[in-house]
């Protein structure tokens, strides 16, 4: 564990030293043709739509578990029924 941490640290420091001298590339120019408002709205809407989809999926799966639980209860009450 200690060796691992030391190695992680030393590698990190070595990398930091090297890249200080080697510059990568200049910033590219800003993009044209896309309204900032559109991009911000799209990003924000995407997050909430995805969250909504996730909540819906959890809710649907939760309902299925309820259904299976009810089926189990019924088949315990009436063993002649064959479940599924």
């Amino acid at each position: 564990m200690k060796t691992l941490l030391c190695l992680l640290l030393s590698t990190g420091l070595a990398l930091a030293e090297e890249w200080k001298s080697a510059d990568l590339r200049p910033m590219m120019g800003p993009g044209e043709g896309f309204q900032s408002t559109t991009l911000v709205t799209a990003g924000y809407a995407f997050i909430w739509l995805l969250v909504l989809a996730f909540v819906t999926s959890v809710w649907l799966r939760s309902r299925r578990i309820d259904r299976e639980l009810r089926a189990l209860e019924e088949s315990i009450a009436d063993p002649s029924r064959v479940e599924r």
Partner: peptide, 20 residues
């Protein structure tokens, strides 16, 4: 060699992490 050295170190780092 500078870039080569950097990626070699990263490989060492990944190797140590993965074997451990």
């Amino acid at each position: 060699l500078l870039v080569l050295g950097t990626w070699t170190r990263i490989l060492v780092l990944f190797d140590v992490a993965m074997v451990t």
